[in-house]
Simulated assay, not measured.
Amino acid sequence: MSNVQSRIDQINKQMVLVAVMEAPGSLLFGLALYGTFVGFGDGFLPFLQNPMLINAMFGFGGVIMGWGMYKTIRLAAEKKRILSEAE
């Protein structure tokens, strides 16, 4: 296996790892959206009745999603650069 292909495989593994690490942020953000627009005052998830908690979920979820987006874009740019240099 060539050095380029091994580096591409490493980048792909890192992208999968970032996606897994980003999943809780998406879940937090989605639950915050649900609590804000649908579930406020509903008995489905009682902790979504606290507006301060919902705002914290927006904040933490947004930060985690932003970090994931940043890392994914950086890895995709590196992958594109490596592939263009290999041609």
Results as ranks from 00 to 15, higher is better:
T36M: 06
R74M: 15
E87G: 12
P46I: 03
D42I: 05
L28E: 09
Q14K: 15
L28W: 05
M52A: 15
R7H: 06
L83W: 05
G43W: 12
F58S: 07
G30L: 08
N50W: 04
P51Q: 04
L27W: 13
P46T: 04
M21N: 08
S6E: 11
L17T: 15
M69Q: 10
N12I: 07
G59D: 06
E22R: 10
G59H: 11
I82W: 01
R81N: 14
W67M: 14
I82S: 08
N12R: 14
A76R: 13
E22H: 05
V20N: 10
L33D: 09
P51R: 05
F37G: 11
D9H: 13
L17P: 03
F58L: 09
R81K: 15
M15R: 11
A23C: 04
R74L: 14
V4P: 03
A77P: 00
V20L: 10
F44W: 12
I8Y: 02
P51A: 11
L33E: 14
M52N: 14
P51F: 02
L83H: 08
G43P: 10
I73P: 04
G30Q: 08
I73W: 03
Q14V: 06
A32W: 06
S26R: 13
F29S: 13
N50D: 08
F44A: 14
D42R: 10
A19V: 02
R7G: 00
L75V: 07
D42F: 05
V63I: 02
K13F: 09
G68Q: 00
A56F: 07
I73L: 07
W67I: 12
A32S: 05
L45W: 11
I8R: 05
V38R: 06
N50K: 01
A19M: 06
Q5T: 07
F60V: 07
L28C: 07
L31A: 04
T72W: 01
F60C: 07
S26M: 13
A86D: 04
W67K: 13
L28I: 03
G61T: 06
R7Y: 03
E78I: 11
I11R: 06
S26A: 15
I82N: 01
E22G: 13
F58P: 03
G39L: 02
L53H: 02
L45M: 13
G25N: 02
I73T: 14
V38D: 12
L75G: 06
T72G: 02
A77R: 11
L45F: 11
L83Y: 04
G68I: 01
Y34D: 07
F60E: 08
M52T: 12
F44K: 12
M69T: 14
S2W: 01
G39K: 03
E22V: 00
L33M: 14
F44Y: 15
A19I: 01
F29M: 10
F29I: 03
G25F: 00
G25S: 09
K80H: 14
Q49D: 14
K71T: 03
I54Y: 00
K79T: 02
V16S: 14
M21A: 12
M69R: 12
